[in-house]
Simulated scan of single mutants.
Amino acid sequence: MTRDLTLGILGGGQLAQMIALAALPLGVRCVVLEPDPLAPARLCAEHLRAPYTDPAGLERLTGCDAVTLEFENVPVGATSVLEGQVPLRPSPAVLHRSKHRGREKVALEAAGARVAPYRLIESEADLEGALASLGGQGILKTAELGYDGKGQARIGNEAELHAAWDELGGVPCVLEGLVPFVREVSLGVARGPDGSLSFGPLVENIHRGGILRRSVYPAGSSAHTAAQARTLAGAVADAWGVVGLITLEFFELAGVDGQGGELIVNEVAPRVHNSGHLTQDGGGVSQFEAAVRAALGLPMQDFLPLLPCGMVNILGWEKGNEPDWAALESLPGTHLHLYHKASKPGRKLGHVNVVGQTPEEVLAGMEMVQRVLGIK
């Protein structure tokens, strides 16, 4: 029997590109709806160059076996057209929760997860006393949109809170109290139409300026903490009725009495995630293949790397500072992934995965990659 399935994707960026590349060996072709004529996924998928709400484009997607997405801020007009016409995975209900930080926190708490202390800021009157109730320091984030550090500001006093509220446009926000975490970690979970679950690795992440710079597996967390992450991810996926793949980002608190630290959920991405890119080259199923399997109801399996591995993001460079690609590709254990995007400072243009026999070998390889890329 020859498998002949088609997966639609809302969005045609690098995540859609990597989903499409993982789908092809499974006998699955992808169709992306994306207005950008230079969308990275156009190189390996059928590209519908049109707005996300384009009637003809949406009609084409209804002919797919299922539709998934590569970003959460899909226009409601698009999902409302697709709902009921084709399996949309994750569902509009999951998107509704995850695209608004306030709704997401309420839904996480209902699923049994702990979140950072917070206050909803929907009007100027809500600013009064909010910061003091959270200990006098926090981070103000727009309730919707915002990505890679955009749409947020660190707050240390009342004057900064009012100034940040004005600078963010006076839109609905969430003010979060600061959490004294020891590390940031993330974990993906895929859930099939029959409720079966598969889990990715617990990955340790380093951010700078709100942008993920590097990820490594295994994380420095204990086995107890890794098990806790799987339990929480599974509980959220089940409680939200997820079909598809979601990624949970956690703050890990300091442990006590030899036990691993408790996890606080920072946010949920209803899609494949930058921190999961290292699963491409660790020897097991990748997060992208797991997302395809879940969306189409194919047999599930955990997407854990078989070897220690890490990932370093490649960001856009200033003119004249293009990386030495030959030097980068000659490093042992490295796998270069470029997105075919024009360079702009700070823009994610690709990543390098590093695989080794030991965690120490991976960390040393990542340091070499960073030196070649000029990252301190």
Rank of each mutant, 00 (worst) to 15 (best):
G258W: 03
G129R: 12
V372D: 06
A269Q: 03
G350S: 08
S196G: 10
G102Y: 07
S196M: 06
A16Q: 08
I246M: 09
V369Q: 08
A233N: 04
A16E: 11
L10R: 09
G77Q: 09
S123G: 13
H162L: 14
V268Y: 00
V256T: 14
E176F: 05
W165L: 11
M368Q: 15
E184A: 09
G156C: 04
S343W: 04
G276F: 05
G151E: 08
Y118F: 15
G200F: 07
R271P: 10
S80L: 13
I155V: 12
L95A: 05
G283C: 10
S91N: 03
E122K: 13
P305L: 07
A254M: 06
W165F: 14
E322F: 10
V185G: 00
P35E: 14
R103M: 08
G151K: 08
N353S: 08
I375G: 00
G241N: 04
W325C: 00
T2G: 00
L328M: 12
A237C: 07
L336N: 09
L24R: 15
G135R: 02
L187A: 04
G84P: 11
L175T: 06
R42D: 03
A164C: 07
V355E: 08
V352T: 10
G333W: 06
L328Y: 14
Q85T: 05
R89L: 12
E184I: 09
L131P: 03
I139M: 13
S343L: 04
G170C: 08
A78M: 03
Y118Q: 10
W240Y: 09
S98C: 15
I19M: 15
R101W: 02
A45D: 15
V106G: 04
L349Q: 06
K141P: 08
Y339T: 02
A269C: 06
E70F: 12
A20Y: 05
L202D: 01
Q287H: 03
T62H: 00
P55I: 13
I206Q: 04
L168P: 03
Q259H: 13
Q228C: 12
K319R: 14
P180Y: 15
I139Q: 03
V28M: 11
N205L: 08
A50N: 05
D126G: 12
E104W: 02
I264K: 02
S343H: 00
L33G: 12
W165I: 12
R103Q: 10
A159W: 10
A233K: 00
A254H: 05
A153I: 13
N73H: 14
P172D: 06
P332Y: 11
G320S: 05
V216W: 01
P25N: 01
Y147V: 13
A294V: 02
E322P: 00
E34F: 12
D148Y: 12
I375P: 01
L38T: 12
A327F: 01
V67C: 10
A190H: 05
G151Y: 05
L373W: 02
G192S: 10
G258Q: 01
V174E: 04
L26H: 11
F250M: 05
